[in-house]
């Protein structure tokens, strides 16, 4: 699965991640710290993810 982490625009290739919750855990983020976007749709933590997905992680914390 391809993961784009914003705002840094880091691109990661991650494997064996089956849900949004698991992806956020892997990235050490709480669900309210980032929007999770696939095909321009927001995903809730219970959503399943698939190996061919491209997912955007848009962190939301203001940094000054």
């Amino acid at each position: 699965m391809k993961v784009i982490v914003e705002p840094e625009n880091h691109i990661l290739e991650l494997f064996k991640i089956k849900s949004v919750k698991a992806l956020l855990n892997r990235l050490q983020l709480y669900p309210f710290q980032a929007l999770v976007i696939r095909d321009n749709q927001l995903l809730t933590p219970d959503e399943k993810l698939f190996p061919n997905d491209t997912v955007i992680i848009r962190k939301v914390v203001s940094r000054g």
Partner: peptide, 27 residues
């Protein structure tokens, strides 16, 4: 919350700045 304002902006397709202030490091 900030999460909710981010969702609001996403749903309205609003582009916003995510550039951190270069002086706020360590705040």
């Amino acid at each position: 919350t900030e999460f909710e304002t981010a969702v609001f902006c996403f749903l309205h397709n609003i582009q916003y700045s995510t550039i951190p202030c270069p002086y706020s490091k360590g705040a």
